[in-house]
Simulated assay, not measured.
Amino acid sequence: MDGKLGWFDSDAFYEVLDAERQARRLTWKQVAGESGVSASTLTRMAQGRRPDIDGLAALAAWSGLSADDFVRSESDRPQAEPLAQIATHLRSDKNLTPEAATALNEVIKATYARLRAQD
């Protein structure tokens, strides 16, 4: 990506932030109020633009997300497969019973298998 060693995946950050917003049943206006970022920052992010560093820090603090999880590089260190990471998060979700986590995991695995790019 333009010769940089690493970059911030703002699209992925926004998607996960949106999932957090939905889980808390909040509007984007409420997210702006609770996090201290402007509504225009959230609108720009929805349009694919990156937040400034202070906005990113505020949103990470509000959501409990780690900005480090969204730093990408061509030489990323090996990580667990996405499905394994998802399963881990589902099983640690205090809002889900073990049965519900298993059911969601099965749906995600089936959907992933159907939609993943073929090698």
Rank of each mutant, 00 (worst) to 15 (best):
L90H: 04
A67T: 13
R50F: 02
A57T: 11
L65F: 08
A103C: 00
P98W: 09
N95K: 10
E20L: 09
D76V: 11
A84L: 14
A46K: 13
S40Y: 00
E74K: 11
L59C: 11
A46P: 06
L26C: 07
G55W: 10
R49C: 01
P82Q: 10
V16H: 01
A61E: 13
K109A: 15
V16M: 03
V71W: 09
Y14V: 06
L96R: 07
A60N: 09
S38Q: 06
T27F: 00
K94T: 14
P98S: 08
F13Q: 03
R44W: 04
P82W: 14
R50Q: 14
G48N: 10
V107R: 09
G48C: 07
F8I: 13
T43L: 01
F70M: 10
L26W: 08
D68P: 02
L17A: 02
G48M: 04
Q22H: 08
R91L: 04
I108Y: 08
S66N: 13
A101C: 01
R50G: 09
R21M: 05
F13R: 02
L56A: 15
A101I: 01
F70S: 05
P82D: 10
S10M: 03
F70A: 12
A39E: 05
A58L: 15
A61I: 06
I108M: 06
Q22D: 08
R114N: 07
V107L: 12
Q30K: 14
K94Q: 13
S38A: 12
R91M: 09
A67L: 11
M45K: 06
F8G: 13
E106I: 00
Y112E: 02
L59M: 10
R91T: 03
L5A: 15
A84V: 15
H89G: 01
S40P: 01
I108S: 02
A57M: 12
A110F: 07
L65H: 03
N95F: 00
A80Y: 09
R77F: 05
V31S: 04
L42I: 04
L115W: 13
L90V: 08
A67H: 07
E20C: 07
L104F: 13
I53D: 14
L59K: 07
A60G: 07
L59T: 12
G36L: 00
R72M: 08
L115V: 11
P51F: 09
A46W: 09
D18Q: 05
G33P: 00
R50H: 13
M45S: 09
D69K: 00
A60Q: 04
R49W: 12
G36F: 02
R114Q: 07
V31W: 05
W7I: 06
F8K: 06
W7K: 08
S35R: 01
G3A: 05
E34G: 00
E99W: 03
D2G: 15
A32M: 07
T27S: 12
Q47I: 00
W62H: 04
D119S: 08
F70L: 06
I86G: 02
R21Y: 05
Y14K: 03
G3K: 04
H89N: 00
S75V: 15
L5D: 15
L90I: 09
D76L: 15
Q85V: 14
P78C: 07
Q79D: 12
Q22K: 10
S73G: 15
R21S: 04
L59E: 12
A19W: 06
D52R: 14
E20I: 14
E15D: 13
A67P: 15
S35D: 02
Y112S: 11
R114V: 08
L26I: 09
D93C: 10
